[in-house]
Nucleic acid binder design. Structure first.
Length: 326
DNA sequence: CCCGGATCCTGCTGGC
DNA sequence: TGCCAGCAGGATCCGG
């Protein structure tokens, strides 16, 4: 389940393998992963051929490959926006997406969806092809124009440009972005009339946080997932966001220590970092802080893990009281 | 505009 | 042994 740290590991691998290379051929084996490319799989493949990789950037869980020489850039989504310039291949891993580099004659993976043949680039990487493998196909690839952001700061990690791909333009700066405006984020979170975990998972407030790291940060902050954001002090919210950054930084370091930075195990065990998790996936196991068994609860059509002692439910879990009285 | 629930996908697991 | 419900969970869409 790729969240920010896993996606950043993939970004670094992609960058090392592809910067400077040119797409010789593109092959879409299943239409679904390119569904966001409204012009269709054929258009997607045709336009990529001849494109050259300039850099690989990331914001939250979105990756994009900045490309030179994409045919008919003026037709790409977002190209009509004022100041739009250039093109990018946008990659989202969804739940089960992987980027792999393989010899072209290697047996196709069971869930191989898209393959790109590359020419040039780093000499020691020559001859490999890029493969997008995705079992559940929640993720995908698309081509889009780069559009200006509201300010002149770099748009994301790995880019010096202030432009974002059109489909990424609504995504907030992520928890590890040095240009994240923490005070503004705290203000916006407190204005929301919703639970704190919902707010953490809202990619338009702060991006990159998924179910695992949300639960871990809430455990560290001793907060229940359903605490209304407006009832949490600014200092406590800053503390929570500090834990979000810490847990992701630690996870990224653990991913970086593994043998092959390109391999992210998204279907099986999380690998190195999962031994460090305090709450997520630990139903019935003792809380590392107080020993109380961790509880799993259904929340937002998924699971939340918390310590029932360290993370007490709010006194007024919802706003139901107010509306029913009124 | 804001909020929250439904939806899309496939494969695995566990209960009966 | 087979069948089916439940679960995994990203982003997006849509109704209130």
């Amino acid at each position: 389940m790729p969240e920010l740290p896993e996606v950043e590991v993939v970004r670094r691998g992609l960058s090392r393998w592809t910067v400077g290379s040119t797409v010789r051929a593109a092959d879409v084996l299943h239409p679904r992963p390119v569904r966001r490319h409204v012009a269709g799989p054929e258009d997607f493949a045709v336009r990529l051929v001849g494109a050259r990789v300039r850099e690989v950037a990331r914001r939250g869980k979105f990756l994009w490959v900045v490309l030179d020489g994409v045919a008919a850039e003026d037709d790409l989504p977002g190209a009509e926006r004022p100041g739009a310039e250039g093109a990018a291949l946008v990659v989202h891993l969804g739940m089960s997406g992987q980027i792999l580099f393989q010899p072209p004659d290697a047996a196709p993976e069971r869930h191989l969806r898209v393959r790109l043949q590359l020419d040039g680039g780093p000499p020691e990487r020559a001859g490999r092809e890029l493969r997008f493998v995705d079992q559940r196909m929640f993720g995908g690839l698309t081509l889009a124009a780069l559009v200006p952001t509201a300010d002149a700061l770099p748009a994301g990690i790995g880019t010096a440009s202030a432009a974002l791909p059109f489909p990424v333009a609504h995504i907030a700066r992520d928890a590890l972005d040095p240009h994240l405006d923490l005070a503004d984020l705290v203000r916006r979170m407190r204005r929301r009339r919703t639970g704190v975990k919902r707010a953490l998972l809202d990619q338009t407030l702060v991006s990159g946080v998924g179910n695992i790291y949300a639960d871990e940060a809430l455990w560290r902050a001793r907060l229940h997932y359903d605490r209304q954001t407006g009832t949490i002090s600014p200092a406590a919210l800053r503390g929570l966001l500090g834990h979000v950054g810490d847990v992701m930084t630690e996870a990224l370091a653990a991913g970086g220590t593994s043998f092959d930075a390109l391999y992210v195990n998204v279907n099986g065990e999380s690998g190195y970092f999962d031994r460090t998790l305090a709450a997520y996936g630990r139903e019935g196991l003792p809380c590392p802080r107080c020993g109380t068994p961790i509880r799993r609860e259904a929340f937002m059509n998924r699971s939340s893990y918390r310590c029932p002692r360290c993370q007490r439910p709010p006194r007024r879990p919802r706003e139901v009281l107010r509306s029913s009285v009124a």
